[in-house]
Every structure is written in C-alpha cells, then in structure tokens.
Design a protein around this nucleic acid. Structure first.
Lengths: 158, 158
DNA sequence: TCAAGAAATGATATATTATAACATATCACC
DNA sequence: GGTGATATGTTATAATATATCATTTCTTGA
C-alpha cells in the first residue's frame, strides 16, 4: 500500500516550493508569463492539499487588501488549468494544484469526503481501461474526468 | 464495435416509454411516489439523449404554463438522482436519464462534444481498474464520477 | 528609447446554477 | 375525517461563472 495522500506533519513548505519551481519551469517552456497574480493564486491553491473554490481564493486575496474581482481569479485559474498546473475538480467546483503537469496523462483524483484532501493518481490500468472502453464504442476521447470520492487511508484508520 | 449511442432515426418514443416503465417499477419497489411533477421532469429529461440543465427543465415547464420555481425542479432532480433514475453529469452541471438504474454499478458517461449526446456505459474493466487503484492506496470508495468527453462514432464519421 | 500592438488586469454588470426557509397543499393511514 | 408525513409553492438569496469595455503593463521592433 502506498498512500497517495501526504503524511501528517510533512514539510508542506517543500510541497509549495517545489510546485512553484515546477510551475516556473512549465511557464518558461511555454513562454507563458507567470505574473504576480497568477503566482499568488497558484501559491494560495497550494496552501493545502485540499481543493479550493474560486470564491475562497477571492476572499483570501481581498482579505489581504487586494482589490480583486471574480474575473481576475477566474482568469488566473484559466491560465493555470490550461497549462495543467491546476486541475478543476468538477464534482466540487473547486481547483487543485496538479503534481505532475508535465506528463501527458489521464489523471484521476481521489477526494476524501472526511478531511477534504485531494490526491492525484496517474494509474496506467485506469487509463488503459478508459481508452479501451472508448475504442470499443468508437469514441474519440478529448478529455476525461475521473473523480473518486471516499475515505483516505488516514480517515479510515483514525 | 458497438455504438453506445442510439442510431439516427431510432424509435425514441420507445426509449421514453421504457424509461418511464422502469422508473415506475423502481419507485414501486422503493415505495417512493412517482408524482406528476417527478414524472413530468423525468419525461422531459428523456426527450433527448442529451443532458439537460435544471434551468432548461424549468424553462420548459414554465413555457407550458406551469408556475414552477427552481426548488421544485431541484427537488424532483434530487428525488430522481437518489433513486438513480437520473444521473448528474458533473462536468456539464446537467442531468441525464439513466438506462440501468437497477444495477449497482460504477457508471461511466461518454459525452459527445459535437452533438451533445450522452451515453452510459457499465464497463467492468473500468470498474475493476478503479477499485484496484483505490485498494492500492487504501482508499474506501463512496462514489465515482467518470465522464469522458470527445466525439461519438456518428460525429467522427459524418 | 520609445511607439505600437499584444497581453494582462481592473471594473462593472449580469448570467447561471443551487439552496434556505417558511407556507400551503396533498397523501396515507388509523 | 383527523393527523402526521410527504410534496410542492413561494420568496429570497447564496454560490459559481462570464461578458464587456477600460486601463495598465509588457514586449518587441524600428
């Protein structure tokens, strides 16, 4: 068993730093501008391993004294999701920092209904099953949403 | 290749009738009341093989002269989704009539981005892959959302 | 270097999706 | 037929998202 979810007491600053470093690399590679606002939104999303709604982000930004309106947040989110740095969790209307933006994956998301944390998986068997099922019905895949809700390991044992 | 999507020119009245008959059976089995409003909403959802939004349903009901407000529609939808007669497509915020409400499945939804139609699959390999992946990370599944967007067979060939 | 165009953000308004709360009507059962 | 449970009506509002135009900032090439 490998728990996808981070251990309690892990050094979360390292998660954040590494995510930002990776985002910088991706933006550089794409000649995309990692502006202050985008960086700010991205790092807010990475403050936890939970998914965050657009309006939660907005509230935080405003509480820090910034005069930000919804479109600003949604634009940053659009930028980040286009680059796959952030993933939208459809069943939560919320956004989640993506671990592995560089791999061309059909990602899967485990969502703990108790602690609220989200973990991304890139399970080949699942991807293969989806592609095979699509092929069987002659369906040309453009995008997939795979979201699995339930209890993470920590929450089943504690 | 078996196309999950219905053929052009199929007898859609039969789809509707069979869905309603099945819904009646399910309601009966659950001692749940298939009221006029619920039946009306259900049959509106089945008017096509597309997913329908709550407000589209509302507009139709109102255009038929009924004095219906959003809560009425959402209540009917909640009733129907609880019984698995209707499925919510998270990535569309829309609702879709479920083919096979009686099987205890992890359903998967193929959504054509061109014609808008939706088809439900119950692919064992996908279900197995999801359960296996969850088991590997000691995750206890409560619910799954599997939505696959792309082009249906008809839309790739025509 | 700076002018022009492109890209990003600001600002205002509004669209879309969903629910809370309480009133009324209908149903099921004794 | 009265009573409690269930369903729907009604009003208001919350939560999520986008359209549009103005302004600012950045980039790039003369």
């Amino acid at each position: 068993m490998t728990d996808l979810f981070p251990k309690k007491g892990h050094d979360h600053d390292r998660c954040i730093d590494s995510a930002i470093a990776q985002a910088e690399k991706v933006c550089e590679a794409e000649s995309a501008r990692f502006t202050d606002m985008r960086r700010k939104v991205f790092s807010l999303i990475w403050q936890s391993h939970k998914a965050v709604t657009a309006y939660e982000l907005l509230d935080i930004l405003q509480s820090e004294g910034l005069r930000v309106q919804p479109p600003t947040v949604y634009r940053a989110l659009e930028f980040l999701t286009d680059l796959r740095l952030v993933h939208r969790i459809e069943s939560l209307n919320a956004y989640f920092g993506c671990d592995q933006p560089d791999c061309d994956h059909l990602g899967q998301y485990f969502i703990c209904t108790k602690c609220g944390r989200v973990a991304e998986a890139v399970d080949e068997d699942m991807s293969i099953a989806v592609r095979k099922a699509a092929k069987q019905v002659a369906f040309k895949i453009e995008a997939t949403t795979i979201e699995i809700k339930g209890l993470c390991h920590d929450c089943t044992t504690h």
